[in-house]
Structures are given as structure tokens and as C-alpha cells.
């Protein structure tokens, strides 16, 4: 992430982090219509637009909270880029194309901002892929992986699951290996590289 001083619009990110209802409402009022227009003109509905808008804001929250995202450009083009990326990928997943209308051409974004927006989308999409693949696994594997990702000592987890420590480690590495291979099979389907 960039080490530049934050853009003045960083307050919008702050609003997301602190659930500042009035400021979030401002985000909807000011930037919602444009995203709606973009999605509805590109084979989507108003509901799709609302989903995209909502998910993009959560992605930005996650990126700020867990990956230290700092805004170095105005919030609007950044948000629009994340929304656009997300919508294009949704269309691709559904096997549809046909996006003709551009959303962000009027903005002149620097490389860094572009990269940050792309990464915000990609990191979050990746997390969704990982979670989706985990949820497709057998119950036992899910249980073992979920437990092992908590801060609890592995010995405690083994006794909770009623197995020996050695067995837990062996089983966990099997589960992780099959999770990873499922992820690899789906990476490009999800539009991630």
C-alpha cells in the first residue's frame, strides 16, 4: 500500500470503518446513482446495482480494516472502479459480455489508485473464493480448518475434536491440500489470476 498522505476523501473510509450512518448515507446519495446507471445500462437491474454497491463498500471496509488501505485519490473514482470491476466479473461469471458504457473515463486516475482499487476487488474476491471452496468441503475438514485458524492451542483443538495431536496435524494437512487444489481449479473461473 501507498505511503503517501491520505486524500481528503479518506473521511469516507473512516465513515465505513466507524459506521457513520449520515456519512454512509451521503455516499449512497452522491455516488449511488452513477453506479446504478452503469449497471442498468450494462445488462443489470437496479437490484444488481444495489448488490454491487453494497458489496464494494464492504470490500473497501475490509481493505481498510485488514490491509491498511489509504485513499490517495478522490473516493468517487475509486469506488466506481471497484464497482465496475465487480460487475464486469459478475457478467463474466454468468457468461455474458457486452459492456459498452464506460464508467470512469472522465476520471484521470494515477497508477497507484488504479492498482489499489484493483487490489481491493481482487483481495476480496479471493477471500470469497477461498470461503466458498471451504464451504464445499466435507464437514470434518471444515471443522478442522475452522478450528485450526482460531488462536486456540492445537493440543486443545485436538482434544476438543477427540483426536490425537498427530492425527489432527496429518488430517489438517490433507484437508488444506485438497482445499488448495479446489481453489486452484476455480481461480480462473472466478476471474482471478
Amino acid at each position: 500500500m501507498s505511503t503517501q498522505t491520505p486524500h481528503a476523501d479518506q473521511h469516507f473510509i473512516h465513515a465505513l470503518l466507524h459506521n457513520d450512518v449520515q456519512a454512509v448515507e451521503e455516499i449512497y446519495r452522491r455516488f449511488g446513482p452513477r453506479v446504478k446507471q452503469y449497471v442498468t445500462q450494462n445488462s443489470g437491474t437496479a437490484d444488481d446495482a444495489a448488490d454491487i454497491f453494497q458489496e464494494s463498500l464492504v470490500d473497501i471496509y475490509n481493505q481498510a480494516r485488514y490491509k491498511n488501505l489509504v485513499l490517495t485519490c478522490p473516493f468517487e473514482p475509486f469506488l466506481l472502479l471497484v464497482c465496475k470491476r465487480k460487475w464486469l466479473n459478475e457478467l463474466k461469471k454468468k457468461g455474458r459480455q457486452g459492456v459498452t458504457k464506460e464508467l470512469d473515463e472522465q476520471f484521470n486516475l494515477g497508477e497507484d489508485s488504479f492498482h489499489d482499487a484493483e487490489k481491493t476487488w481482487a483481495d476480496n474476491e479471493k477471500a470469497r473464493l477461498f470461503k466458498a471452496m471451504l464451504e464445499k468441503m466435507g464437514e470434518r475438514c471444515q471443522e478442522i480448518i475452522r478450528w485450526s485458524l482460531t488462536d486456540k492451542p492445537q493440543e486443545e483443538i485436538a482434544s476438543k475434536l477427540g483426536v490425537t495431536y498427530g492425527y489432527l496435524r496429518k488430517k489438517k494437512s490433507e484437508c488444506m491440500a485438497s482445499l488448495i487444489s479446489a481453489i486452484k481449479e476455480n481461480v480462473s473461473k472466478w476471474g482471478l489470476t
Binding site: L16, N19, V21, V24, E25, Y28, R29, G32, P33, V35, K36, A46, D47, A49, A50, F53, Q54, L57, V58, Y61
Partner: peptide
């Protein structure tokens, strides 16, 4: 935050 976003959904829909 998700609750807030959900409540603002009608702004778009």
C-alpha cells in the same frame, strides 16, 4: 456496517 448499507439500499433500488 452491513445493516446500515442494507437500510440504504432503497436509495439505489
Amino acid at each position: 456496517l452491513k445493516k446500515t448499507l442494507h437500510s440504504l439500499r432503497p436509495v439505489i433500488t
